[in-house]
Nucleic acid binder design. Structure first.
Length: 255
DNA sequence: ATGGCAAGCTAAGCTTGA
């Protein structure tokens, strides 16, 4: 069995100060996709991860202290790829590693603010990403997209859907984009096993929303239909508190 | 409709986050 985790760490150095390395050692996933490193390569001590047996792959942002994704894998990848030939590739948002049987992506989708320029950028990024994946999947049918999508797909995915109809992350356009993305041939791993609500992956840092479980589910592991027969379990780890997000986990019986 | 907090840059306050 291969355990694939995904975790928006909201600053890897801050997460490490809060015990991320010890948690990683104990949970011991085969692969973990990380988002929002908020650190560049030279600001990190790879030895922390290498001592636990991980290969370290990174797609960092040009801008210091901003964004950045990584994948830690016990098994070395055959090939890695960064970005998807998009204007925002310099923001460190997309990293792929390939094994014999399948590929793993770590993705950190842009966030938007209501009515802002950044929301328009997010929407155009989503459109370009859709086009990229629709081609990619044709020749690489066994793929899992792990990461922070910054979108709640359905009303069940956030605690307050009614008051957030127009909030970035839950607009009609973004929700429809998510549905169309799944139609390319992906399954939402967590939802596949957990049809009920009240399961979230992110909580606002304000007003103790986490203790009251008032959150949003914006972190996903979307697994291609060709891999679904290999998907054995999917769950989240809301008790891991190194970040304002929690880890998500998928278990597959691939090598 | 607004505010609520935190990380990290850089050196007191700004930007970003969703």
């Amino acid at each position: 069995m291969t355990t694939i985790a995904s975790y928006n760490v909201n600053g890897i150095r801050a997460a490490i100060r809060k015990g991320f390395i010890e948690w990683l050692r104990d949970f011991d996933p085969d692969i973990i996709c990380l988002q929002e490193l908020k650190a560049q390569r030279e600001q990190l001590d790879f030895q922390y991860f290498e001592e636990l047996g991980y290969q370290v792959y990174i797609d960092e942002a040009e801008k210091k202290g901003y964004s950045g994704v990584a994948i830690l894998s016990k098994k070395p990848a055959h090939r890695i790829a960064r970005g998807f030939e998009h204007d925002l590739d310099n923001e460190g948002r997309l990293l792929r590693i390939d094994f014999d049987e399948y590929s793993v992506f770590s993705v950190y989708m842009p966030s938007g603010a209501s009515g802002s320029h950044r929301q328009q950028i997010k929407l155009s990024w989503l459109k370009a990403f859709y086009a990229f994946v629709s081609e990619y999947i044709k020749t690489n049918p066994k793929t899992i997209f792990c990461g922070d999508f910054n979108i709640c797909h359905e009303a069940i995915d956030l605690h307050n859907p009614k008051s957030n109809q127009k909030s970035p992350g839950f607009t009609v356009e973004e929700r429809e984009w998510f549905s169309s993305f799944l139609k390319l041939g992906f399954v939402d791993s967590f939802r596949h096993f957990n049809p009920e609500g009240n399961h979230y992956s992110w909580w606002s840092l304000r007003a103790q929303t986490r203790d009251r479980n008032l959150g949003w589910r914006i972190d996903y592991q979307l697994i291609s239909t060709a891999l679904v027969p290999h998907l054995k379990a999917a769950y989240m780890l809301p008790d891991a508190r190194h970040s304002d997000h929690c880890p998500t986990v998928a278990e597959v019986d691939c090598k």
